[in-house]
Nucleic acid binder design. Structure first.
Lengths: 190, 190
DNA sequence: GGGTCTATATATAAGAT
DNA sequence: TATCTTATATATAGACC
């Protein structure tokens, strides 16, 4: 189960074999754990690794495995084992519960985090956008004002009616825009 | 791994549990076989089924397993404890991993959510903010207009007919949006 | 119950970092 | 080398017989 189909034979490459061993051992232990939890069954696995051939990896636990082993040799002490299994199952179930609780908690936290992060990011972004946009607006206003000023100045020297001023400016656009329009415009700005 | 995600807990339904047990035991044995083949490692699994609690299923073979188990037993408890995977530690480790994975997942989700929420909230908020800002702008414009008005007034004292000024401009529109009365007044004044 | 058949969930081989 | 990521191969839950 991987990028390629692996031939079922001894893996010659050392590092590859090590890696595969590690991964598969972990998967195996998980499987045993699951079998134990799902079916309430006693089980153990003993694996002699390539590193230290004298000390095997064992699951579920040394004593547990030892017990299973003993039982394998002399079929007895059924009741005690059953109790132990129940204990284990109980422990695992508790873990599951804790895990679920954690999930819930984190989900709640996440909402909070989202809000906070959003507020911050939002403010930053708005700050920048407004700064730029208002800068432009201010500039435009100044421009318009200057032109108006010029007109006023020229008025001093003549009695003729001044022509219409200032049409289709950015300010006009910004101010005239409907909310929906502005939002669309903002979207492009962002 | 099936049609639905199975919760990691004791399967209450009897037939379902039996079925699952059977399938999983088979899979487990296969896994051990593969580990043995691929990594040239000695390993065995012992599973006490729910049917005959006295006779466990064993792999590779009872005798083979017996050898492995005997070897296991010969080790001192101290040595075993060192390398063995104790159940609690294993579960804790898994918890941590699950937690981390969860975090990762949530981080990814959050980014997505943030993006989506931000796009919407950002636009809304900016819309509102910009609206406020424009209100301020209008005020500033108004101020400037007042100053201009003063000049125009003084100009009117020295000329016959005050010329029309600033008609249909963006600035006017801006002011208009804020206060229609002011516009009328301004028009009249000018 | 015990086999057979998919749609999905998982495990994991290679590759990327 | 260890770890993380991704594309695939496997395992298996639920449905059906």
């Amino acid at each position: 189960m991987g990028r390629k189909k692996l031939k079922l034979q001894w893996i010659a490459n050392d590092s590859t074999r090590r890696s595969t061993f590690k991964k598969r051992k972990q998967g195996l232990m998980k499987k045993i754990s699951e079998l134990n939890t799902l079916c309430g069954v006693e089980a153990c696995a003993i694996v002699y690794g390539p590193y230290n051939p004298q000390v095997p990896d064992v699951w579920p636990s040394p004593s547990n495995a030892h017990r299973v082993l003993t039982r394998f040799k002399s079929l007895s002490e059924m009741e005690q084992s059953k109790k132990m299994v129940n204990q284990e199952a109980y422990l695992k179930q508790r873990m599951v519960k804790v895990r679920e609780q954690l999930k819930k908690q984190q989900r709640a936290n996440r909402e909070e985090e989202i809000t906070q992060l959003m507020n911050r990011a939002l403010i930053d972004k708005i700050g920048r956008i407004l700064k730029d946009e208002l800068k432009d607006l201010a500039w435009m206003i100044d421009e318009k004002m200057n032109r108006i000023q010029e007109r006023i100045d020229s008025l001093r020297n003549t009695t003729e009616s001044p022509p219409q001023l200032i049409n289709g400016t950015g300010i006009q656009m910004a101010v005239e825009m409907e909310d929906a329009q502005r939002q669309t415009w903002l979207m492009n700005q962002i």
